[in-house]
Nucleic acid binder design. Structure first.
Length: 952
RNA sequence: GCCCCCGUAGCCCAAUCGGCAGAGGCAGCGCUCUUAAAAAGCGCCGAGUGUGGGUUCGAGCCCCACCGGGGGCACCA
């Protein structure tokens, strides 16, 4: 926060006064640059593959595949929050390497994206130019952090050699279908063969040979996992593109830009992710992921088991209302039925006149049901979706004058229309069970409808809808059953009666895969003169983007719901029309003017990291097996060993990526059935920001704290807490931290701030603590004045060795469990012990200390290791191992409690028996004094560490 | 409204199985070095764990309720 001009080691004239070999920022910079150059020129972090261009000796080392979530190369530069996860994965990767593993760790760029395109729209600069320059800047910034990446594997999604395979995967998905019986995707050619042989009957029973070419194509198209459909999509005029459901917020706006989104029917590419709903849900169990992320995916997929139930409508021949319910167990509690106002059945069921004695509340004040219904429908049509789904509004609706029949008991149920039932959900009609559904309860209360409890609420239940579990009541043959049992029995009865069937529904919808954008992957298909899709052969990939003069899609007034998408590619006339010979001789085809969404490239990059320069295959099977195959035991799905990133990708990226990976698995291209085995959500580094009395942000670096107040140039400012960024004037960059202290200090500090998963505030003035530690360690090896190595060759004494081995033991466990904050603390503790001891530090302690520090602060560790007389990098030096003999204490402090309060302590051998310890404890002064005249009820002994005497 | 996560010293954070509340760092204070200041070094100071109950010989840890902070979902039938 407060930054004076006299930070350690920055000012030249200060440095003159310092010892020549003190570990200053200048010295750190020199060390860091030297080692970064050396790692690069020696290929220190190249990870060998078993086969292919990157093949090398993999020996029988265990594999560890570490990944960071794909960054978008932003032009605005990094702040200290960005590399938090990258440093963490690097520490883990470096530790794993020293622990003997072959470690695959690299970082590529998710480089298609809106910012570069928007910049192109504004300036006319090609997004590729912008993006490549941003990547170069980001690479340079990250290089200064000393990340142990394999640079040969750093790919970028805008690279034609990369998106060639994105397009190839698209075609595999296009040419696949989901075989429900096999529970997996298969090639479409197999479906065609089954139809042709008659093994699989066609939907209308005609022989395959009797179908026309177009009919056959349509049958196959209907099954494809990637398909073109006229579908209601989220059209966002303000952005000029359509959006996936996941990109639209709950209040019907674009996640990016916050523009209104409208439902439009448009022909677009869709991905049949719904075919995988069950597996995406069920396989979550097999993943080592944070529970909240699993929960979010479960909610998003939204599987619910229930039933479709048909309610016959009395007086209307052949009409029945089909509803979906998740609670068929409550059918006896249904007391009315509601149709959405737009429901097509409304016309048919509306009665000619009100029944005798109709409740006035039900009529909307109209003379006939038809008038009431028409008035209500007109009103509902005028309302926006947002208004209709607002949860605070009063329930409204009108009676249709008609009754439906409950199939369970033949009771008549009045049929209403009400806007709280939406045409877009389920069947657009519900059976209302007010006793067990809060919305239905509110409606029933207002309209004076009966409320019949069918689930026994717990004692003391206050009233209202009871949505919890309980025994079924008032339900004839279901009485006494649990919810699950009652559901099963009710469904069985419905099926017997022919009035319904058990059904599973999902909230998950198919994935809208077209975007009206320039800066994305073109679709590897063309359209013939009839507008039919023709996939391009592999030999024509990649389909590259044409040069255009205008990068913008046509955008409209954000509220112009009637506008139509117009993609930038539609203006590239020469690219659009293409003459190709696709087997029927040269013909003119038309290309697809849409591009793929940003998620496409990030759906499979883990596979390309494994085999980045394979020109023959998306990934070599042997290499994929080596790095990603299931390990056996608990691991039946395989995947990346550690995947670190923010929780914001919980649904979108992680769901799409799992889907693609499963398709590739089903089609036999990969052995793993999940992309990311272990997921870890890092916290964020946040920062304080300050506003003056006008509410304008002032530079946080110039704010000073005084007596609990925050002063900017003398005047009091208001403190806020939030994201780090330019607009809040509170950014701190890794570059400035590296300049002031060195990258090792920055790495160490970021890892020391707390557990990786926890968000924490950045505090610049605290960084110096990590710096001081490195200085003290440096001084334990190097004489500051002469630069000579000063360690002692005398073996360390027993006490120090015991401490060393305790630290080794703890640090190893900490690193393995990603507890880098406590690992760092233990290293400081050991170094402090060396310092406190005085005199030259013994080599047999210093060397393991340097090795243990290496994952956190690799440059200074390499430098010290070299000064200690070793040649070559320490990156592959075995990580120190604790000697179990030295972990056993000679004596243990035993706590002696009376009634749970500490009253005395004993020094005892760790091997002491319970009986011996009990005797010793009862004899202590503390116990005798505290106990006084009271007797002893019982004595709890936890040898050798604790005795608790319980007085009578 | 429902669901999930988190509350330990002025601040960031430790605390294996329920067993002495403190590993580490920042800040503060004192001292050493220094003409002085900074840097560096050495030392000191510090909470009874958000609140109220419960279980237990014993609770920061387990259970219940509440308060505060963060996140997700939301008329999903």
């Amino acid at each position: 926060m407060t930054q004076s001009s006299t930070q350690p080691g920055t000012t030249a004239d200060v440095e003159e006064a310092l010892p020549a070999f003190r570990y200053t920022a200048t010295l750190a910079a020199d060390i860091e640059r030297r080692w970064q150059d050396r790692w690069e020129s020696e290929g220190t972090f190249h990870a060998p593959n078993p086969v292919g261009p990157l093949a090398g000796p993999v020996d029988d080392r265990p594999r560890v595949f570490v990944m960071d979530m794909f960054p978008y190369p932003s032009g605005s530069g990094l702040h200290v929050g960005h590399p938090l996860g990258y440093i963490a994965t690097d520490v883990f990767g470096r530790f794993s390497r020293m622990a003997g593993a072959n470690v695959l760790h690299t970082l590529g760029y998710d480089a298609f994206g809106l910012p570069a395109e928007q910049y192109a729209v504004q300036t006319g600069q090609h997004p590729r130019v912008t993006t490549e320059s941003n990547i170069a800047t980001m690479r340079q910034q990250l290089r200064k952090l000393g990340l142990g990446h394999d640079p040969r594997r750093s790919i970028s999604t805008i690279d034609p050699d990369y998106y060639r395979w994105t397009q190839w995967i698209f075609l595999q998905i296009y040419n696949a279908w989901y075989d429900e019986d096999a529970g997996k995707a298969r090639r479409l050619s197999e479906l065609e063969a089954e139809y042709a042989s008659g093994q699989r009957p066609t939907p209308d029973g005609r022989a395959w040979s009797a179908l026309s070419g177009v009919e056959r194509a349509e049958l196959l198209d209907a099954k494809r996992l990637a398909y073109v459909a006229e579908a209601p999509v989220n059209w966002c005029p303000g952005l000029g593109t359509v959006l996936a459901n996941e990109e639209v917020t709950a209040d019907g706006r674009s996640e990016r830009g916050n523009f209104p989104v409208f439902k439009r029917n448009l022909r677009q590419w869709m991905m049949r992710i719904t075919a995988y709903a069950d597996r995406l849900l069920d396989d979550l169990e097999l993943l080592d992921w944070p529970e909240p992320v699993k929960l979010m995916q479960r909610n998003w997929i939204g599987r619910s088991h229930g039933a479709h139930v048909d309610f016959a409508v009395s007086g209307v021949e052949g009409a029945s209302v089909r509803v979906f319910t998740t609670r068929p167990d409550t059918l006896f509690g249904a007391t009315y039925v509601v149709l959405a106002p737009e429901h097509p059945l409304v016309e048919r069921v509306v009665a000619g006149a009100w029944p005798e004695g109709v409740d006035e509340r039900w009529t909307g004040g109209a003379g006939t049901p038809r008038e009431a219904v028409e008035a209500y429908r007109t009103r509902a049509a005028r309302e926006t979706e947002e208004e209709r789904t607002s949860d605070t509004r009063e329930k409204t609706g009108v009676f249709t004058g008609t009754y439906a029949v409950n199939p369970m008991n033949g009771k008549p149920l009045p049929v209403f229309i009400a806007d709280y039932v939406l045409m877009g959900y389920g069947t657009g009609a519900i059976m209302a069970v007010p006793a067990e559904d809060t919305r239905d309860y509110d409606f029933a209360e207002k309209f004076g409808l009966p409320i019949v409890r069918t689930v026994q609420p717990p004692e003391g239940f206050e009233g209202g809808a009871y949505t919890g579990d309980g025994a079924t009541i008032n339900s004839e043959f279901l009485n006494g059953l649990s919810r699950v049992e009652a559901k099963e029995r009710a469904i069985a009865r419905l099926e017997e009666l022919g009035s319904g069937s058990g059904t599973t529904t999902y909230k998950l919808r198919d994935w809208l895969f077209s975007r009206q954008r320039y800066w994305g992957e073109p679709f590897p298909v063309v359209y013939d003169e009839d507008g039919r899709v023709v996939p391009l052969p592999d030999s024509m990939l990649p389909v590259t983007l044409p040069e255009v003069s205008d990068y913008s899609p046509r955008t409209y007034d954000p509220d112009d719901a009637e506008s139509m998408p117009e993609a930038p590619l539609s203006r590239a006339a020469e690219w659009l029309e293409v003459e190709l010979d696709l087997g029927d001789g040269p013909k003119t085809y038309r290309r697809d003017t849409n591009t793929m969404p940003n998620w496409a490239g990030s759906c499979w990059y883990h596979l390309r990291y494994v085999d980045p320069v394979n020109t023959e295959q998306v990934v070599g099977p042997e290499n994929e097996r080596y790095w990603m195959a299931p390990r056996g035991g608990d691991d039946t799905v395989g995947g990346v060993d550690l995947y670190v990133g923010g929780v914001e990708h919980a649904v979108l990226h992680l769901l799409y990526s799992r889907f693609w990976h499963k398709v590739l698995h089903d089609l036999g291209y990969v052995s793993s059935s999940e992309p990311y085995h272990k997921l870890f959500n890092q916290g964020y580094i946040q920062a304080y920001a300050y506003t003056d009395e006008r509410g304008v942000y002032v530079p946080a670096a110039e704010v000073e704290e005084q007596d609990g107040k925050f002063l900017y140039h003398g005047s009091v400012v208001n403190r806020e807490y939030g994201k780090m960024g330019k607009s809040l004037k509170n950014s701190v960059t890794p570059d400035e931290m590296a300049e002031t202290y060195g990258a090792d200090t920055l790495r160490l500090y970021e890892m020391s701030m707390g557990p990786l998963e926890v968000s924490r505030p950045w505090e610049t003035r605290a960084v110096v603590g990590s710096f001081r530690f490195l200085q003290r360690l440096w001084r334990n090896v190097v004489d500051e004045a002469s630069g000579t190595t000063v360690v002692s060759e005398e073996p360390a004494d027993e006490e120090l060795r015991r401490l060393l081995h305790r630290v080794i033991d703890g640090v190893r466990a900490d690193y393995a469990a990603l507890r880098f904050n406590t690992a760092g603390a233990k290293l400081i503790e050991l170094n402090n012990a060396l310092t406190k001891r005085g005199g030259p530090a013994p080599r047999d302690v210093v060397e393991p200390l340097v090795l243990m520090l290496a994952p956190l602060a690799p440059h200074v560790a390499e430098e010290l290791w070299a000064r200690l007389g070793h040649e070559g990098t320490l990156a592959y030096e075995p990580f120190p191992e604790a000697d179990p003999a030295l972990l056993v204490e000679e004596t243990v402090t035993c706590v002696v409690q009376v009634a749970g309060k500490v009253r005395d302590r004993l020094e005892v051998p760790p091997s002491i028996t319970e009986d011996e310890l009990r005797e010793l404890a009862l004899a202590t002064e503390g116990v005798r004094r505290t106990l006084g005249e009271r007797g002893v009820r019982t004595v709890i002994v936890r040898a050798p560490k604790l005795v608790n005497v319980v007085p009578a």
